[in-house]
Design a protein around this nucleic acid. Structure first.
Lengths: 189, 189
DNA sequence: GTCTATACAAAGATAGAC
DNA sequence: GTCTATCTTTGTATAGAC
């Protein structure tokens, strides 16, 4: 399984952004990680903003494919919400990395329009997925107390992203679980 | 009311970090903001890490003074929680700035030990304040359904910090309110 | 597609005059 | 306490050989 250079660069870049933020890594770091010269990276991604846009687009696609898979494969809304929480749990890697979107939140100001557009598209897609999930919960009863799917969706996203922030500082995954515990406790089926 | 240069520098730095992150501003930016030369800043803060530590320490003091004021002045736990949520709401400045702690979350890796220590101290203090507040709620009944104050504390912090992330992208304060709505809905007195 | 070499600007920091 | 001047390192990016 040989991975092409472009993919290796994107893998390394995503990792670095999620560890140190978009302003926290350089082509020099990627050069070391992938084993090609700094200048060669510009062949694949002429400007850093191209790279930042590319990894956001790829990340969005990966995550949405996973979420849509849950919609297809998991019978209840409760199971889907549990799987959703796990996506954000796994993204933490024991506290060493954040979800790409959270990592982008701070630097946002300096991004290109293309990058910003990818972020907005992704967040809208995740929101819609959550709204549908909570709407389904109203039908199948697998999550307690759902009266407003839209409100629940933004609440749930805030919980998992906020839990990531907290866990990032403590590097203790138990804190992530504790922060999400009230949300998970409402899953009944 | 003349503000001394050191304070002006801290004010400008805090603003910039909360807008663009710790890696997103330079002494050059501060130079422009405050109106003294780049080199002169080093007289007040020899290294950037000294500045980052100083503004975190000051921020922690300011926020904790406010929270302790609520404990003194507001009779119910519910009122104190509402005030707490408002601290994080106000910190957003219509979506243009984050709470300093959230802004630090991404860059964290590259911080000095002194800066990290200030962050940890602050987060512990906020957590303790929240735990006490939810414990009080069990007595005064001003927040519904509190069974585990420690769990509630980390949940509440995740909600307000996560809500900041979401609002940062949308620049719509209504999203902050929507994200916190489930939490606020439990306040009864 | 990757290399060497290089340009160019910005960042963090120091020395010493005033 | 602030200035000018300077240094060093790093970051982003381009040109042209292989």
């Amino acid at each position: 399984m040989t991975t092409d250079t472009k993919t290796q660069l994107m893998d390394a870049a995503e990792q670095q952004v999620r560890q140190k933020g978009a302003d926290g890594f350089s082509y020099s770091d990627l050069s070391t990680a992938v084993g090609i010269r700094k200048a060669s990276i510009h062949y694949h991604f002429p400007a850093k903003s191209d790279l930042l846009t590319a990894i956001m687009a790829r990340y969005a696609k990966t995550v949405m494919t996973a979420l849509d898979g849950y919609t297809r494969d998991l019978p209840t809304a409760g199971q889907r919400l549990a799987a959703f929480i796990n996506v954000y749990r796994d993204a933490l890697n024991e506290g060493s990395t954040l979800c790409l979107c959270v990592a982008y939140a701070v630097s946002q100001e300096g991004f290109s329009d293309a990058t910003k557009a990818e972020i907005v598209t992704f967040r809208d897609a995740v929101s819609d997925w959550l709204i549908n999930t909570f709407a389904d919960a109203q039908t199948d009863g697998s999550i307690t107390g759902v009266t407003d799917p839209k409100m629940e969706a933004s609440h749930a996203l805030a919980v998992v992203e906020g839990a990531q922030i907290a866990t990032r500082f403590s590097e203790d995954m138990a804190l992530f679980d504790q922060s999400c515990s009230a949300l998970k406790g409402r899953i009944t089926g």
